[in-house]
Design a protein around this nucleic acid. Sequence first.
DNA 1: CGGCGGCGTAGGGAAAGCGTCAAGATGCGG
DNA 2: CCGCATCTTGACGCTTTCCCTACGCCGCCG
Lengths: 222, 222
Amino acid sequence: MTRVLIVDDEPQLLRALRINLVARHYEVAMADDGGSALRQAAQFHPDLVVLDLGLPDIDGVEVVHGLRGWTSVPIVVLSGRAGSQDKIDALDAGADDYVTKPFDIEELLARIRAVTRRASPHDAQPAQIRIGDRTVDLAAKTVSGDVRLTPTEWRLLELLLRNPGKLISQRQMLTEVWGAGYDRETHYLRQYMAQLRRKLEPDPARPAHLITEPGMGYRFAP
Amino acid sequence: MTRVLIVDDEPQLLRALRINLVARHYEVAMADDGGSALRQAAQFHPDLVVLDLGLPDIDGVEVVHGLRGWTSVPIVVLSGRAGSQDKIDALDAGADDYVTKPFDIEELLARIRAVTRRASPHDAQPAQIRIGDRTVDLAAKTVSGDVRLTPTEWRLLELLLRNPGKLISQRQMLTEVWGAGYDRETHYLRQYMAQLRRKLEPDPARPAHLITEPGMGYRFAP
DNA sequence: CGGCGGCGTAGGGAAAGCGTCAAGATGCGG
DNA sequence: CCGCATCTTGACGCTTTCCCTACGCCGCCG
């Protein structure tokens, strides 16, 4: 299920979008200014952000910058301003698409489908991954043997499993799982890596797949 | 250099786009109907396709289908038709963006940058460097043969490997790895270069790739 | 021949980083 | 309002890594 964060200061537009998206089985979160948008993005971890440029507190382009500092989530910008320079600024700041108001809701949905499809090609690859004697399915969010993981554990595990063999730095893990501003909280990592090892490793005391690289980060060894 | 295939049946628009793209250091190929577009795409292997919907032979949406059958190259559609249904059809066929004529050339270029930026990190293949019988991957921070390096060793090795064949002065190594103020601590270098040789060189006593230039610095010989 | 500067090797103590246990917040659904 | 699951925070041994000192080797030059 695709998770969408809608950011707009007009309640009726917010409401209209939410209804349309929920009807199409999107999971929706909402924000009505730039500050709460950035906070929501860190907490909600959307797969897509629909962002109005005309916000009461921060300029929309700044919100794009703020998001791009730590995530590559697709961003579709809405705006009343139809000028070319506005579009260029938003796109070059890191937005993926730019739609001018008033817009046709069906067109917006098609553009949402387009950027979402482009951003998630990893759904095509086999989602079944073996860790010791357990099997993890990232798409179905299941682990064999009646093991259950919390949302945070899933985000952390997914990040590691999507980059098999590659070292993931502590900074990257912290910003991608907990959001920007958490780069120093390294003991969150120790805490949750320990949990994952307890739940997944055959011998949690001697991890064979979720490997620590001291001073740098962690690595998933297939 | 990004390779772009432009498909349009109006010679003057074709020409205008080519000039603008070449000026921005894109590599450009052109086609003026659907058939030659598909043929060109197969031969030229573009990183981006700019596609006019109104072609003399095949409908543009069919061209999108034809391309999507075998490639995921980004497609930006141009069209004179501004109706929502046209946009939806093109986007759902697999296009990444839809621009209605007449359009501002700068806006088109910004949209080209946006879709290219989104698609390009995909073809990033691991940069592997050979040292003797070992293979080093700087991105994944791995060395073949179960060799592990410490953070300081990685910083030092990375500096040398990113400048193959080039002499790196002791001063530069010390300031970049240990920070300003450590210019005199040359014995740190001896210490860690010895470690790297032990871990990477086939015969650590006779280094063939991590080479000392007495009194000056060190050099990586590929 | 003997001092000297630059280099390579070895080992030990200090510090930073890590794993673990445990308990205090927090949020959610009943 | 309470209980439960989850997320934070704190404290304490243990391991890895880093920093530092000491020593041997080699070529150069007086």
